[in-house]
Design a protein around this nucleic acid. Sequence first.
DNA 1: GCTTTGCTAGTACGAACGTATTGTACACTC
DNA 2: GAGTGTACAATACGTTCGTACTAGCAAAGC
Lengths: 209, 209
Amino acid sequence: MPKLADHDERRAQIVAALLRIAASRGLHAASMRTVAAEAGVSVSTVQYYFHTKEQLLLAGLEHQAEGVGRRAAAGMPNDAAGTRDTVHAWLVQFIPVDEEQRAAYTVFAAYHALALTDPALAGLSYTHGSHQLEGVLRDLLTGAQRAGEVAPDREVAAEAGNLLALATGLADSVMANMRPPDAAISLLGYQIDRLFIVASPSRPVAGRP
Amino acid sequence: MPKLADHDERRAQIVAALLRIAASRGLHAASMRTVAAEAGVSVSTVQYYFHTKEQLLLAGLEHQAEGVGRRAAAGMPNDAAGTRDTVHAWLVQFIPVDEEQRAAYTVFAAYHALALTDPALAGLSYTHGSHQLEGVLRDLLTGAQRAGEVAPDREVAAEAGNLLALATGLADSVMANMRPPDAAISLLGYQIDRLFIVASPSRPVAGRP
DNA sequence: GCTTTGCTAGTACGAACGTATTGTACACTC
DNA sequence: GAGTGTACAATACGTTCGTACTAGCAAAGC
């Protein structure tokens, strides 16, 4: 009966337009009209696929969270490079170095701020993705500890949580123009070197590497 | 000639209303009308003291930044308690444990997100406060290293930057309902124990302390 | 071939937004 | 005591918001 329209594709197209606006002009600039214009459709079409604006925003957050989850699983580059470098490379993913990562951070920050006051967003468990991330890192560190790369008196659960929180905080500082991305990466490397026994005891940091 | 009105007081009153709304209902809910109603004045009064909404928002951010700066300077509780505990207590300030700190974090997060896309906010150097914070912490660690409480091969600049970023990231995780505040405080303590030589090598962490 | 149904566009409505304009009451100088 | 300028209030204007409503168009079932 229909005129054959791929619902998933249309929804993805509209959500992409929403996130594009949120990243460039801010989430507050993403109205039904601006999203429709960005997606190249009419306002009615947006209304048709997402009944209300709230549902559109929720779909945008879901899409963003899915991206994080995908990064968590597939973000393991090459285990052959040694655990220390694997951990470093994995955590560097969270430092916004290019425009794409900056855009992703911007969108997430907007949703994060909105969730603090909006009851509809607050109820959503976007914590799940972060716990998943921490689990991946913890498993990685557990393996490293068993292999003797991490001192046995280290508590891997605490180290994993702190490393992820450190990466988050460093990402914040980069986005706040507090330090350039490479400085954040150096600081991350410093901390990981402290954790891994095999690290050279002192390598230059804090300035340009 | 005037009817005697303390401009600074009136401005402070209105800014307080703005921040109260931003913390409870979100910065997007802070319109000229809602702020005026919250402050108990008319819209014209808000217009009178802050010509445009942009200037009102900027004043709100300034007030918030001043609070951080005040915290940085006066936040040194008791040096007699030992450097390790001083550092810990100072950093715990950034973990939102009570409603007041949660409110402050909420407002800051909203401004942070807004600054990422709004050119008027982005130009403002609210980085200055963070650099000040890092300087305070660095001085503290330098003293501790000279006193032999921190191993001489530690780079205090990197440690200070990482500790502050860690506290920020942990605060993020608490506000995202990823972990309770006391878990974040425990993680912070774990990291500081790793930095200070005098720390007992293993104390329980990650669960309730 | 007509009807039914999925999809898209156009438009209207009430509310809220930021801001400009106008008016008024009071404290001060002269 | 008249005049001046500050401090505030009331109101109006034009825009944009989310959403509801209506119509038209193409494909599928009979």
